[in-house]
Design a protein around this nucleic acid. Structure first.
Lengths: 205, 205, 205, 205
DNA sequence: CATGAATGAGAATTCATTCAT
DNA sequence: AATGAATGAATTCTCATTCAT
């Protein structure tokens, strides 16, 4: 039953890390077919057996990758919150986008490739912390800028901006000949949020 | 080498159709694992051998599915254009969204499931006609509503609306407990476009 | 679901046969480790894939072997019944034992090796027909020799003779230097049954 | 090469014991798949490394289990001999059977499970001492009851009774719905021996 | 002495593709 | 044209055994 060992020595902790690492490299290299256990083990420089010492199956590797992504997102957003809350919406959106792009492109586009190839099976679980930090950001932003609190449909608009915004960024960054540059996209999204807020404010005034 | 026959007789054409059909059914039933050649052949009611008479490999079936999707999109949008061009932006966006939802959900969510499970490998090729018809729609809309032609950044905004909008819809329709209803989403996107246009118009006036 | 094809062409029926055949050969050659899918496929002269066309898994091959054994036992006992019922008990037991030995040693000890190596997992299922034919034999013997019907404990004695007798034969035939010869064993068992009947008859007279 | 230590200290002896113990527990729990080195080591509460300090390989653990079984049989039979030699045959057989059943069922059916799952590979070696004690029993019985010494075929009959009797007991105790109870079986075997002796005596008188 | 991380050959099973009929 | 039997490389996962610490 309790067959998977939690790493107890520092050597084994390193092994776990290198396997997850290898998972990212494999996806980056070979797309959605890259997550073969053999391939991952090879890249990690360990044997298949070792891989299975720490992960019950293929799935769990993907889970670990997810988890790492989620915590990296949190680690990126969290410290930005104070800064963002002091910006006007447009600037905040722009700033967040560039930060997000950097995250997506970090380590040879590690996360970008996952989003690209693994689609829906990538952010399968572990999205909770991400939702929490984004929700936290929204809350703090509103309490620092209470004038926006009377905007209508905040949850819906947030859903659109987040889901749509991320999709746009992933799409743009993945395309070989993107019809719009990332800067244009960022500016566009910022404008869009700006207009939306201005429009929404007027509508409820 | 030139082994794949182009179907020239009606029976053959029917076979090809049923294979592509089977592809959709398979994905709907078994997700991303559904596209096994055996499974598809079984569902189509033909033998594996027959399948390979018409498709050189697995890939080509997916291609054909893509192609059908693309032409269905075109077939859906094309006839709507005259109607849409006569609507105010908000209504046009809303109408388009509902039409798109119907398309995604047609035949037991055939296309929705493809977008859901096959991710980026689904709209791999054959997007050209889709781009063309959307671009056509935009052109015609602008020539019927010339006042919007001076909006800034139309291509960028279109990119955002289309990529982001589709992603939002697919996401919303795929979720088990979506945090926002489809109607709310449609209204939100419509508002967003509305605000954007109003804002953009003012900015350039 | 219905993935395993029932052989429809004569070629495939031959394939199934040769796979089961190979199962027996493999066990005879390599003991309990012989039932590897690869090994069996090799011996059968087919590829692993082909093996899995007809058997869902390893288990099913063993099942088929069982089934064949069971039907061979029935085919051996059935036609002997008329003859056996006309013999005195001692002779009947002896005759049956030699028939059984021949069956166990047929085809290079095919069944003997299975009993030897696979132990309890061999006669896992499909024993029903065997039980039926033995019970049939007993019935017919008693109705032809009604004087024995008043023997006490017939079911218990039958259990002992059958289970014990088979175990003795398998054991004797498997040993490299058996302490008793098969003929001695046969004679001994026959005597034992004889004494038992005589004793039992006297006890109830 | 001479790597395996003979346990010389009491702690080591305890370790060896607990490993063999674990072997029995593992088989009882998981059947023939239970004898994995990992599993045994876990149950024994030692590491795999330690296991290999005392046993060169899996085989040797099984050997040790065999050996223990053999010595337990001897330890059970030996002290019964004086008592048994003073009983009439029927009682002696019955007594021995119940003693044997107790041994098979001891410690949650430890030995019964081994006989059940490991089949022929269980009493692989180390049967010599068992044979010796049984032969000793027979000798002593005959010298205390010399009237039976003129029975014909004593070795053959003994073979049948022992091999057949054990098989019957293991079979009966292993079955979920045994067609005969253990008591019936014991009585039946006792009767059988009784009849055999009576018959045999008469035959040679 | 003891540990447990690491190994890697090998097992079962799948699946895209080919080919004889 | 159509069939479906056959293929075999590739994949996931296991387990007896070794070895550095």
């Amino acid at each position: 039953m309790a067959k998977i060992r939690k790493p107890q020595q520092s050597r084994s902790k390193q092994t776990v890390t290198s396997i997850v690492e290898a998972g990212f490299i494999a996806v980056a290299r070979d797309g959605s077919d890259g997550l073969g256990t053999r391939k991952v083990a090879d890249i990690a420089g360990v044997s298949v057996g070792t891989l299975y010492e720490y992960f019950a199956n293929k799935e769990e590797i993907l889970d670990a990758m997810n988890q790492q992504f989620a915590s990296d997102v949190v680690a990126m957003v969290q410290p930005l919150i104070p800064e963002l809350t002091r910006m006007p919406p447009r600037d905040a959106v722009r700033t967040l986008q560039f930060a997000f792009r950097d995250l997506l492109q970090r380590d040879n586009g590690r996360y970008l490739n996952c989003a690209r190839w693994l689609g829906r099976q990538f952010p399968s679980a572990h999205v909770e912390p991400v939702k929490r930090v984004l929700s936290d950001l929204a809350m703090q932003y509103l309490s620092h800028n209470p004038q926006y609190a009377r905007l209508p449909n905040i949850p819906v608009m947030a859903y659109i901006i987040i889901q749509g915004g991320i999709a746009c960024m992933v799409s743009q960054l993945s395309e070989d000949n993107p019809p719009v540059s990332f800067d244009q996209l960022a500016e566009g999204l910022a404008d869009m949020v700006g207009y939306m807020i201005e429009g929404g404010m007027k509508a409820t005034s």
